[in-house]
Design a protein around this nucleic acid. Structure first.
Length: 465
RNA sequence: GGCGGCAUAGCCAAAUUGGUAAGGCAGUGGCUUGCAAAGCCAUGUACUCCCGGUUCGAGUCCGGGUGCCGCCUCCA
């Protein structure tokens, strides 16, 4: 079995072969920390999390770098409008971002380099590009000359000639100081609208363009050539295209071997927008009392290259799926005695799981393998054929696969209060006395209090509603 | 206007890449249960958006159409 990814560069699924055996350098475009991230942002970060987790599951030592964009037009505008210093804003939203990652069970990258902490690297990269003749200056700003990089457009398959035609009708060329409307800024000269946001460097007083940060930081942490670069499809052009141009012109080497792009998320079939009222940050959803794991499930269960239709129906279905898995775990924990060890069933499940994931991270297929396993094992539990060893093996399998999916965890452990246990006990006594009216009354009261009782051959099982 | 992606049962969503449609949720019937819950079994004729075409055979390939989405303006 071989791990294969769909490479945007070639538009084909390719067998994955890292530059250095057993090691993977992974760079994923991170957030601009000027606001709370929305659920669509997290779709991409979730995909990258699953990718990283599966690479690790496959035995690769992954170095995962995600940038934080902490200087950029929108941020500067916010500074201007609120009078708040840049750092204060970015610190607040960086903190919120990390908290959200934790809520969703997204593993932390190895480093989150911030643009403002890598001005030196960017300046140095721009200087290299200037020395090699890829730049020109206009009114103190430095631009990348696209015509100096003939391969431009290879990733997004954009035809530059048509791009120009397409743009000419809509773009007021007077707004551009560039020789060619497609050229992009590497360094932006300071003007009064930038306020306090500027750096005095060899390139003058100003700030870096957006694209240069990813080139500078990815190469700093992962080398001039590395394995995988991810992002949302919207970053493909021009951002990733520009990164390739900057990086390859500067280093003379192939920048990235595998480009993986995540499709967008729509809400209830519609593009997420504030005017439609279907714009959600993670916090908005938590306020509605939605289980973060259900959100994780919905974000992760659709193939990353497929548009993900996020809906409240889907969240509810995800909740039920989570319950099924949690109930399965509770059931296994109660199995006692001798019986089947489930070695074959476990192996079959894991193989099917890996076959699906190896095929460009087919999570739906991988989850299907797990559900088939659960149904098979449940059947055997019903028949009393499973032994403690089998139950242990099945639970261990779920734990192992959970390192990839992150949605197979047991129910949150919550101590059942004494008074609830007392009620359960009272109900058991009533049942023994065949006073079902009383038993049902107690059960109703417990349900109202948020506790579910399930009678099993081993006694009553209590869990949170 | 240019380029690209997507369209599978009530909902979500796969299909080893041309070989005769996974899985989950919801629903229905049954077993089990004091009744439930959980679990198991059974159950959907899916004209795979529409119209053509290639092929022994197409959800999968080609052409046309419709709809949705993205990029072309520093939004994952």
């Amino acid at each position: 079995m071989a791990l294969r990814f769909y490479n945007t560069l070639t538009r084909k699924k390719e067998e994955f072969a890292p530059i250095v055996a057993d090691k993977v350098g992974l760079y994923t475009c991170g957030p601009t920390i000027y606001n709370f991230a929305h659920i669509g942002n997290f779709r991409a970060y979730m995909f990258e999390d699953i990718l990283r987790r599966y690479l690790e599951f496959r035995g690769y030592a992954v170095t995962h770098i995600m940038n934080l964009t902490d200087v950029e037009d929108k941020l500067i505008r916010t500074c201007r409008e609120t009078g708040e210093p840049l750092k204060a804003i970015t610190a607040r939203y960086a903190e919120a971002f990390f908290a959200d990652l934790d809520t969703l069970g997204i593993k932390r990258a190895d480093a989150y380099p911030a643009a403002t902490e890598h001005i030196e690297e960017m300046v140095s990269l721009i200087k290299t590009l200037r020395e090699k003749g890829h730049t020109y200056e206009e009114e103190g700003s430095i631009y990348f000359r696209l015509s100096s990089f003939p391969r431009y457009g290879k990733l997004s398959h954009m035809d530059m000639a048509q791009l120009r035609d397409g743009a000419s009708g809509r773009v007021d060329s007077d707004e551009y100081e560039t020789e060619d409307a497609r050229d992009f800024a590497l360094w932006k000269a300071w003007d009064e609208t930038d306020g306090e946001v500027y750096w005095e460097t060899e390139l003058g007083k100003g700030r870096p363009g957006w694209h240069i940060e990813c080139s500078a930081m990815s190469m700093k942490y992962l080398g001039a050539s590395f394995d995988i670069h991810c992002g949302g499809v919207d970053n493909m052009f021009p951002h990733h295209e520009n990164e390739i141009a900057q990086s390859e012109c500067a280093s003379g080497q192939k920048f990235v071997n595998y480009w993986l792009h995540c499709a967008h998320l729509v809400v209830e079939g519609k593009k997420m927008s504030k005017s439609l009222g279907n714009f959600y940050t993670l916090r908005d959803l938590l306020e509605k009392g939605i289980d973060p794991m259900a959100i994780r499930w919905v974000l992760a269960a659709t193939h990353y290259r497929q548009p993900n239709n996020f809906s409240f129906d889907a969240l509810e279905a995800a909740n039920q799926s989570l319950n099924r898995i949690r109930d399965f775990r509770l059931r296994l924990a109660e199995v006692k005695g001798e019986g089947a060890a489930l070695e074959e069933a476990c192996k079959k499940c894991e193989d099917a799981f890996m076959t699906a994931m190896d095929d460009d991270l087919n999570m739906s297929g991988a989850l299907a393998a797990v559900f088939e396993f659960i149904r098979e094992v449940n059947k055997e539990v019903d028949a009393g054929q499973i032994g403690e060893a089998g139950a242990r093996n099945a639970l261990a399998l779920l734990d192992r696969l959970n390192t990839v999916t992150g949605v197979f965890s047991p129910t949150m452990e919550e101590a059942v209060p004494e008074e609830i246990l007392a009620q359960v006990q009272a109900r058991q006594e009533a049942r023994r006395a065949r006073d079902f009216a009383k038993a049902d009354a107690i059960r109703d009261a417990l349900t109202a209090a948020g506790w579910v009782i399930e009678d099993t051959s081993e006694g009553a099982r209590v869990k949170r509603l």
